[in-house]
Amino acid sequence: MKSYKKLFLLLAFALLSSPAFSQKADDILGIWMPSEGTSYIQIFKAKDSGKYNGRIVWLKEPNDESGNPKTDPNGDEILRMVNLKDFVFEEDEWTDGTIYDPKSGNLYYCTIEMVKKDKLEVRGSIDPFGLVGRTDVWVRMKTK
């Protein structure tokens, strides 16, 4: 009886000390809104490579002041643009990918961490180690 109690305590300790939230690779699939709230990005799995990409699927203001579709500094249309590329799932993170900022035209290294089921921390950086960069919080979008 005493050994069962010990086992129970051990299991309880193991459960409590394990990460409160862990995720599977496909948990990232879906539509997400960056913190500025002016766009939605749909993360999908590439059929050929199995890597995770993201496409800008909605813009709060899709057209510029002249009524033309908004473009990045290279002249490419922002809506429908794939701006997250080549993420792989490793050790509870989606890594080795890149994020493109269509406002500035800059490409950054990127790592994505799911801090909650419906919340991502997306860190873009100028170095592959993520030392110099910025972290943005994205929230999952769902139907009303």
């Binding site: 809104m33 929230v139 999952r140 769902k142």
Partner: peptide, 9 residues
């Protein structure tokens, strides 16, 4: 669509 949880911009 609506945010799955409260978010502040």
């Amino acid at each position: 669509l609506v945010p799955a949880e409260e978010v502040k911009a």
